[in-house]
Design a protein around this nucleic acid. Sequence first.
RNA 1: GCCAGCGUAGCUCAGUGGUAGAGCAGCUGUUUCGUAAACAGCUGGUCGUCAGUUCGACUCUGACCGCUGGCUCCA
Length: 595
Amino acid sequence: MNCERLLFRFEGSCEMAVEDKAQKLETMRHSASHVMAEAVKSIFPDAKFGIGPAIEDGFYYDFELPRPLAVEDLPSIEAKMAEIIAADQPFKREEINSKAAIKLFNGQPYKIELIKDLGEEQISIYTNGEFTDLCRGPHVKSTKEIKAFKLTSVAGAYWRGDEKRPMLQRIYGVAFDSRADLDAYLKKIEEAAKRDHRKLGKELDLFSLHEEAGPGLVYWHPKGATVRQLIEDFWKIEHRRRGYDIVYSPHIAKVHLWEISGHWNFYRENMYSPMEIDGIEYVVKPMNCPFHILMYKTQMRSYRNLPMRYAELGTVYRYERSGVLHGLARVRGFTQDDAHIFCRPDQIESEVKDVVELAQFMLKSFGFSEYEMMLSTRPEKYVGEVKEWDMATDALRNVLEKLKIQYKVDPGEGVFYGPKIDIKLKDALGRLWQGPTIQVDFQMPERFDVNYIGEDGQEHRTVMIHRTVLGSMERFFACLAEHYAGAFPAWLAPIQVVIIPIADRHGDYAEKLFKDLRSKDVRVQLDDRSERMNLKIREAQLNKIPYMLIVGDKEMESGAVSVRLRTGEDLGAQSFADFEKRVKAVVESRTLDQL
RNA sequence: GCCAGCGUAGCUCAGUGGUAGAGCAGCUGUUUCGUAAACAGCUGGUCGUCAGUUCGACUCUGACCGCUGGCUCCA
C-alpha cells in the first residue's frame, strides 16, 4: 500500500471520528433539554411545553409557566437536573399512533399542535423518569451520559417564532462532554465579553452613543474616526482601481421617489417620518439606490459604456425597532459602503464574480478569515417575474459554484426586488452579523425605466447590482474592534507610536523625534507629562499603542530610541532611523500580525 | 415591538425608608524617576425621568426613557 492511500484513509477516518463526536454531543445536548424539561415539570407541575432542541454549544426549552422566571430560578432547576442525572434514568423510545398521542398530551396545547402539524400516523415519544416528550430522537441511553452542563439564561421567545403567537419562556443551557470542556467554554465566553466593542469603545475612547440625542446614532470620537478614515481611504483606492466611480448624493428626497422604487410600500414603517417642505413630503434616505439611478439616467447610455459602477459611502437612516439596537452593530444611522453596478444581462455573472472577489479581498485585508456565505432566494413578498428571479438567482449561484465557495442557502430571505449573496461576520461571542451583500436586481430598472442603447440601436433594460463589500462602517468597525480586541494592526492603529521621555530634561529630544515622525505621517503622540515612565508605559499599553519609544540619557547621547512593543516585548535601543524604517515597512505593507 | 433583568460621581462599583460612599480618572502641590499604577491634598452626584404611597423615598409602587440578554425584524 502506498503512502498516499494510507494518508487518505487516515484523513477519512479522522473526519468520521470528528463527525461522530459532534453527533454524540448534539444527542447529549438534546437529552439535556429533556432533563431540564423534567426538572421544570417537577417545580411547575402546570407547565406547558413548547420545543426543546439542541443548539450550538447547548440546548434550550420553551415553556409556558405560571410566573415569570428570573436567573435566580436557574440554580434550583440545575439542582433538580443534577438529581435526575444522578438517578441514571433510562431514555425509553415508543411509537404510538397520533390519536393516542393527542390523548397522551392532553392539556399540552403546543404539543398537540405539533402532532397535528406532523400529520403522520405513527409518532415517536421518549420517556425519562416522570417526563414524556414528543420527540424524533435520538437520545442518550440514560441521563447519566450528560456529563457537564450549566443553565445560562432565560429569555422570551415567540411560539414557533411568530410574533403574533404567545411568548413562551425559554431557558438556555450549555452542555459538554466533560467538566473541563464546560469550564473552557465558560472561560472563552468570559474572555469574549472583554473584547465586546461597546466596552472597547469606552475604554479606548473610540465612539459614543447618547440617550439624550437619540438611540442608535453614533458619535465617532477622534480615535474611532481615525480608524474609520483609514478603512474608507483603503476602500476608495481599491474601488477606483477596480473601475468604480465615487459619487455623492443627498440625504433627503421626496417621498415620491420611494413610491416609485417600491420601498414606500414595503418599508414605510422603517423609514423616518416624512417632513413637509413647500407642501411636499420628504424623507431621510434609507438607502442610496434611487439616487444612483437618477444619476445614471441623466444621459443616454450605450452598451459600450456598461458596466458603470457608482460607489458611495452613503449615510442612511432606518428606524430600527428599539429592542434590536446593539452598540455599533445595529444602529439607526449608518454609512453603507454602497455601490450600484449598471450592466447588461450578459455581464451579470462576471460582475458578481468581481464583487465576490472584491469582498473576499477586503475581508482578508482586514484579517477576517471566518465568515459565512449565504445565498438568499425569493421571499414570499416580492415584485417582478419568477423567470427573472430564477435568472438572477442562477447567476449568483453560478458564481459561488465557479469560485468553489462553500455557502448555505437561506430560502425566502432575499430582498423584495431580488436575490442576494450575504456574507456574515462573527462578533466576539460568535454571533453572526450581516456584512457584505450582493443583490441582483431587475426590478428597480423596471420601475425607474433604466435603459441602455444596445448594439442593435434599440433600448434595452439595464440590470442593477446592489452591493456592499464591508456592510456598513459602523458594523464593520465593531467586528474589527472585537476581532483585534482593540489592538488594531499598526496600519490601522489610531495612535501608532508614543514617545515617552524618562525625565523632563529629555523633553527636547523627544519633541524632535515627535516632529520628525509626525512630518512623515506617522500617528505619533508625545507623552511629556511629569509622570513616571512606568505610568506612561502602563497607559500606552492599556491603550494598545503598537510602539512605545522610551528615551532617556542613553538614547539622547547616541540618537537612539528604546523600542517597546505593546506585546510587552522590549526590543532595546536602536537608531531612530532604523525604527522609522521598521514602522514604515510595517505600515506600508498593511501587515496584520507584525509590529 | 415582545419577554426578563438592570439604570448610584467621567469610569468600575458598594450602600440604606430619615436627603449618599470607595477605587480609578480630574484638579493642585511635591517627586525627575529606565520598561504595566510615586506621594499628599482637593473638587465632583437634584442616586435615568415623571408621578404616586409616606411625616419623610435614592430606597416601596406605577408610567415613561435608555441599556443588557433573548425573540421577532434587519430594504
